[in-house]
Design a protein around this nucleic acid. Structure first.
Lengths: 198, 198
DNA sequence: CGGCGTTTTGAGAGAGCTCAACATCGGTGG
DNA sequence: CCACCGATGTTGAGCTCTCTCAAAACGCCG
């Protein structure tokens, strides 16, 4: 959210939610959009019988319910899955800022466009069924400029989640690639070997 | 693209691409963004050894490379996978239009925000591994107001593709749900039965 | 009728998931 | 300093589920 002007951040407020606490409910008039600072929020719809269907589950640092800007009512529930902190941006204030400051509007567009890009890439990734191919795909796309070094941020478990694999599957696949000499590993980096690209 | 003013559409041009023909290449200066009218485009990156990695594959009717609006260079190749028709919107013209017409900018934001919403929902759906649960999830979310009727648009094969399943898996799963009395089917509609929601 | 695409069902194999045990490492407190 | 603990990392075995390949029924249209 580094693209936001100070003024907008100052005009926002932070709210803390306990587990299962609602940020908004279906049918509520849209009052704002959110940034998840800490914790996790879900968008949930309820069936007539009260069963929950999760539409979306947020990550820390992401925008939440930004599409609500262009609606009058929320059309699902926003619920905290864990203890969560959200920054609340007032809808009218956001729009006013956009009109005042076209550059801000462009920044927001850029953020959304980037999101779309990332999400589409992720979806493409998930369409690869084989753990091996999915991992290779990920490695190649997240390699640095040299095209061979992939920095490991966070734990392998986290990576497994990001890739939509169980951690066991990831460990095994990675070990196999290593044994076959397709990659080399250190604690912080994966080095892609030429063979991998053939 | 119904939110675009006539003037923008008139200012655009349509281009036809043959299979494997490039719309743009990595490093090219961004000249515009696109709407896929017919056919399919892919965003592709090449490894140092020349292997292709697909980042994204477009659907008909969708925007393509809209994130490029906020970059100076394309950072992957845009290639036609089939015989493809694209509408080309000049980058500068788009920006000029946004500045001239804040409402247009807002419309564009709304389109992007909606995209993000849809993509996130799809990603959530794909995170459900079981064909059965994925199908049920889809049914419940795409039910009409009554919460029980799901219209079937297109063939079941198409639905299978949308859900990321083979058509065989879809047929079988659907048949099973039907046999268990969880849904009823006609040619055009799936009726969700109360049992399904328990 | 004949051909094409969708729908359906069958059998088999492979891949990833689940459950389980164990190693490793870093931190914490006695 | 060591014992303990929790989380990550690792490997094993079995199972389930979906994919793949195959074949056939069905419906539609020329």
């Amino acid at each position: 959210m580094d693209w936001l002007p100070r003024s907008m951040i100052n005009a926002s407020r932070v709210r803390t939610l306990g587990i299962d606490e609602h940020l908004f409910r279906k049918g509520d008039t849209v009052f704002g959009i959110f940034e998840v600072i800490k914790g996790r929020l879900s968008m949930v719809r309820h069936t007539s019988e009260g069963q929950k269907v999760v539409i979306h589950s947020s990550l820390e640092g992401s925008l939440f319910a930004e599409a609500a800007l262009f609606a009058t009512e929320y059309h699902c529930d926003g619920v905290a899955v864990e203890e969560t902190e959200v920054r609340v941006f007032d809808k009218d204030a956001v729009f006013a800022a956009f009109r005042d400051n076209p550059e801000l509007a462009e920044n927001f567009m850029a953020v959304l466009a980037r999101q779309v890009q990332v999400l589409r890439a992720k979806l493409e990734q998930r369409s690869i069924r084989s753990a091996r191919q999915r991992l290779i795909h990920h490695f190649i796309l997240s390699a640095e400029e040299d095209g061979r070094t992939v920095p490991l941020k966070g734990t392998l478990k986290d990576l497994a989640v990001e890739l939509g694999l169980t951690h066991e599957a990831l460990y095994r696949t990675l070990a196999k690639l290593e044994k076959e000499g397709l990659v080399e590993r250190s604690a912080t980096v994966v080095l892609l070997q030429p063979k991998l690209f053939i």
